[in-house]
Amino acid sequence: MKYFEDVAVGDIMRFGRYEVTKEEIVEYARQFDPQPFHLDEEAAKASMFGGLIASGWHTGAMFIRMVVEHMTPVHATSGAMGFDDLKWLKPVRSGDVLTVESEVREKVEGRRPDRGTVKIESRVINQHGEVVMSLVSLVIYLRR
């Protein structure tokens, strides 16, 4: 288990594999982001994206799934306060395979003696090596 004391600025972690399907793009969009370019292949073709793309918030949800599967079991975290500087850089499409690369940017001691905040920059990368989304998460780590 990695506690606040165990993470160091510059640490890099690579993890996760998420296959994006058309069915899931549409299902997410119906519930949370019902815009034509997330819902309807024909309408999406006519849009500036040239085809169906995942909601950016859906990419965020797929990202957190990979984090919870691969990082949470081995890092003593207690959720996150939020994030900064989220960028949706490239469309995510059906058939894409996503993975995550995370890098520790900064450790903030804070006032609480039992925990600290770690700023982690994460990049979600597709099968062509293109970064599709990046963000800096403010993750709460417990101390040893």
């Binding site: 950016g56 996150a80 939020g82 994030f83 900064d84 500087d85 960028k87 949706w88």
Partner: peptide
């Protein structure tokens, strides 16, 4: 006439 988003500056829960 919304056409997507390039991202967010910040989010706090």
């Amino acid at each position: 006439a919304a056409t997507g988003s390039p991202g967010l500056d910040s989010c706090r829960w």
